[in-house]
Each structure stands twice: as structure tokens, then as C-alpha cells.
């Protein structure tokens, strides 16, 4: 269904986007209120929680440029050595900017 983008229609479409997004924010908790938290469910939730982050980051490295990969590599290295997020993130950004500067130059 194609809608002409009159000013009113645009606002309606934005509200629709907001409602779809809100449904995703509330939907998981609403669904879980019908599930009894047994040990198996708890294992699923815990494993899924960190897997969400991995599933965001790994394709970012695979599909990204050299700067993106170097940034994630630097963050990993500093995180494993120092164990604190801020230095790890800073190292990632500096690495990405440096690699892109060198490759682009």
C-alpha cells in the first residue's frame, strides 16, 4: 500500500513507526509474563542476552571496512588487558580514525 507523503500522512507514518517500535520494546516482557521462569528458560535468557550483542557486533566486523575491524580488534585487546570499557572504546575509535586516515591518504 503506497501512501502519498502529504504533511499529515508523514506524521501518521512516523506515529506508526513509533507504535511498531514500542510494540517491540514492550512485547518481550509482555510475552514473558505468560512464561514460568524454569531453570531452562533462565539458561535460554542468559545465553541469549550476550548473544544479542555478539550478533550485532560480529557481522559489523565481517561486513565493515579495515577501520571497523581494527576498531573492534583494539577494543577487544584493551578490554582483555585492562578490563575497563572506556579505555577500550577510546582505543577502538582512535584505531578506526587512524586506519582510515592511513588507508585514505
Amino acid at each position: 500500500m503506497a501512501v502519498e507523503t502529504t504533511p499529515f500522512a508523514v506524521i501518521a507514518i512516523i506515529i506508526l513507526m513509533a507504535l511498531v517500535t514500542l510494540a517491540t520494546r514492550l512485547g518481550g516482557v509482555f510475552a514473558m509474563s505468560f512464561v514460568r521462569i524454569r531453570p531452562g528458560v533462565e539458561r535460554f535468557i542468559n545465553a541469549m542476552a550476550s548473544s544479542v550483542l555478539i550478533a550485532v557486533v560480529v557481522p559489523m566486523a565481517v561486513s565493515g571496512d579495515a577501520g571497523a575491524r581494527a576498531a573492534l580488534g583494539a577494543t577487544t585487546a584493551v578490554m582483555l588487558l585492562v578490563g575497563r570499557p572506556m579505555p577500550a572504546i577510546t582505543a577502538g575509535l582512535v584505531t578506526a580514525a587512524s586506519v582510515r586516515y592511513l588507508v585514505g591518504a
Binding site: M1, A2, V3, E4, T5, A9, I13, L16, M17, V20, T21, T24, R25, L26, G27, G28, V29, A31, M32, S33, I37, E42, I45, N46, M48, A49, V52, V56
Partner: peptide, 27 residues
């Protein structure tokens, strides 16, 4: 013109991770 169905599908697909994230916070 904006096609509503692809638009809703893209918004839902990208944000569907919230469903799992919310579920993980349920305990």
C-alpha cells in the same frame, strides 16, 4: 509516495531485537 508494508517490515525487523532484550530483563 511511501509503501507502508515494506516500511513497517523494516522497522519491525531492525527493532525486533528489543523483544529479546525485554524478555532478558523480565526476571
Amino acid at each position: 509516495h511511501v509503501s507502508l508494508l515494506p516500511l513497517v517490515a523494516v522497522v519491525f525487523a531492525i527493532n525486533a531485537r528489543h523483544i529479546l532484550m525485554g524478555a532478558a530483563l523480565y526476571p
